[in-house]
Design a protein around this nucleic acid. Structure first.
Length: 381
RNA sequence: GCACGGGUGGUAGAGCGGUCAAUUACAACAGACUGUAAAUCUGUCGCCUUCGGGCUACGAAGGUUCGAAUCCUUCCCCGUGCA
C-alpha cells in the first residue's frame, strides 16, 4: 500500500508538493521517474540509481512477461530482489504497447503528432500486428511471432507476480490520428478494463487507474471523472495530446481538475526537460520518460547550457573538449571526465560512453525536478 | 629476370562489354527520438545544377567496339612463388 501526503499547494499554479510513501521508501514529489522497462535502467547499475537521485522507477509488464516471464521474477522474490533495487518501483500495465506496437508502429506516430500524414484511425480499425477486443489485446510477439493475449485480468495477474509497489490498470492509449468516434469507443473499453482490473486484483499493491480521452475535451473530462470515481490508489494520465505542446498542458489540466486532491497523479511517458515545469504546474506529481537514457545512448547529453550532441566532431578537440560536460553539474561524470573523452567514447561506440551519459542525464533530470520542488516550496512556481 | 595474382570513390571491398557515378560495409555529415522491438532509425555521401540534367571518373597512355571499370597492347606500381 501507499500513502500520499500533500505538503503544499501552489497559489500560483496547480503545482503540488508532496510525499509518496511506499513499502520501499518515500518519494518526494513532484518526481521524475526513470524508465526501467526490462527491470533495469538501461546501462545503469542498481547502486548507480541512488547516486543519480532517482526515487522511483517504472518497469514494464509486457516486456517482463515476454522476457524473462513473471514466474521467474516471482521465483526470485519479486522485482526488487530480482534486480536488487532498493527503491519504489511501478510497473506499467502493458497498455502502452497497445499503442507502440499497434497503430504507433503502423504509422510511425507517438503521443504527440509531429506532422499530419493524412492517415486517420476510424472506428472499427485494427492495427496490423495486434487485435484489440473487448477482453483485451492479442499481441504478436516480436520475439517469436507467437500470439500473446493480454487484457486487464492478465495484466494484473502478471503485475502481481512481478511485485512492484505500484501497478497500473491495463488501458488503450489512442494515437493522435484517431477520430473522436474511435477514441470514444476506446475510452469506454478502457473504462470497462479499469473496473475489470479493480475486480481482478488480489494483492495490496497500489493500483493506479489510467485516464484516456485523447485530445477531445469532453472525452478527457468524462474519462477523468469515471476513473476518479473508482477506488484507485492513484491516477495515471495517458494517451495522446494532439500536435501542440501548449495544448498538451491544457489537456493535462482538464484531467487533473477532475482528480481527487489527496491521491497521487502520474503522467505517463511525458517529460522532456522543457516540459517538466509545465506539467508540474498542471498538477502532476510524478512522470516518467525514456528521454534521458534513450538520448544518452544516441550520444546526446542534457546540460545547463542545453542539449549537447557528443557525436559531433567539435566536442572531440579544442579547448572546450578539456572541460567537463557541464561545469555546473556535480555528478561523477562531470567531476571526473572531460567532454572530449566522452565524445571519443561515443564516437568509438564504446559502451562505457553510453553508461556515463545515461548516468549524467538521469542525474541531471533529477536535479532539475529537485529545483522545481524547491521553487514550489518557496512559492515561486 | 621469369611466372602467376592484383591496382575501383575517405577506407575495406563487389562489379569483369551496355540497366555503372559504380552493390555492400565502415568512416564522415545532417536529422529524428516523450508509459523503450531503440548502443536505434532516416537521409546525404565525385564535381556542378534552374533538380530536367550536365561534366569528370575505376593506376597511366594507346587501341578494339555503336558502347569499356570490364577485352587487347605497352608502361608504372604492389603482392606471392621461382631463378
Amino acid at each position: 500500500m501507499i500513502d500520499f501526503k500533500l505538503l503544499k499547494k501552489s497559489k500560483k499554479s496547480n503545482a503540488r508538493l508532496g510525499v509518496l510513501k511506499t513499502p520501499h521508501g518515500e518519494v518526494k514529489t513532484p518526481a521524475f521517474v526513470p524508465v526501467a522497462t526490462q527491470a533495469t535502467v538501461k546501462t545503469l547499475r542498481s547502486d548507480d540509481l541512488k547516486e543519480t537521485g532517482t526515487q522511483l522507477l517504472i518497469a514494464n509488464t509486457y516486456h517482463l512477461h515476454l522476457k524473462p516471464g513473471e514466474k521467474l521474477v516471482k521465483s526470485h522474490g519479486g522485482i526488487h530482489k530480482f534486480a536488487n533495487i532498493d527503491l519504489p518501483v511501478m510497473t506499467d500495465s502493458g497498455g502502452f504497447q497497445v499503442l507502440s506496437l499497434g497503430f504507433g508502429r503502423d504509422y510511425g506516430i507517438g503521443k504527440i503528432m509531429k506532422y499530419d500524414s493524412g492517415e486517420i484511425i476510424t472506428k472499427g480499425s485494427q492495427p496490423k500486428l495486434l487485435k484489440i477486443t473487448e477482453d483485451g489485446v492479442e499481441f504478436t510477439s516480436y520475439v517469436d511471432g507467437k500470439k500473446i493475449f493480454m487484457g486487464p485480468k492478465e495484466s494484473i495477474k502478471i503485475q502481481e507476480s512481478i511485485g512492484a509497489d505500484i501497478i497500473f490498470a491495463f488501458d488503450e492509449p489512442t494515437v493522435p490520428t484517431a477520430t473522436e468516434e474511435y477514441t470514444a469507443e476506446s475510452v469506454e473499453r478502457t473504462h470497462r478494463w479499469a473496473d475489470a482490473c479493480l475486480k481482478a486484483r488480489k494483492t495490496n499493491q497500489a493500483l493506479y487507474g489510467i485516464t484516456q480521452g485523447g485530445r477531445y475535451k469532453d472525452l478527457r473530462i468524462k474519462s477523468a471523472k469515471f476513473i476518479a470515481s473508482r477506488p484507485f490508489d492513484g491516477f495515471g494520465i495517458g494517451g495522446e495530446y494532439g500536435s501542440d505542446k501548449r495544448q498538451m498542458v491544457k489537456m493535462i489540466e482538464w484531467v487533473t481538475k477532475e482528480l481527487p486532491e489527496n491521491k497521487p497523479r502520474h503522467l505517463l511517458g511525458v517529460g522532456y526537460l522543457e516540459d517538466m515545469e509545465m506539467i508540474v504546474k498542471a498538477g502532476v506529481d510524478t512522470f516518467d520518460c525514456t528521454v534521458p537514457t534513450h538520448y544518452a545512448r544516441h550520444g546526446n547529453a542534457f546540460t545547463s547550457k542545453g542539449k549537447v550532441d557528443l557525436t559531433k566532431t567539435k566536442y572531440l578537440s579544442g579547448a572546450a573538449s578539456k572541460q567537463p560536460l557541464d561545469p555546473e553539474c556535480g555528478c561523477f561524470v562531470c567531476r571526473e571526465h572531460t567532454k572530449g573523452y566522452l565524445s571519443h567514447l561515443i564516437r568509438a561506440h564504446e559502451i562505457t560512453g553510453l553508461e556515463l551519459l545515461s548516468f549524467h542525464n538521469v542525474y541531471y533530470f533529477n536535479k532539475v525536478i529537485e529545483g522545481i520542488r524547491k521553487r514550489i516550496k518557496k512559492g515561486e512556481l
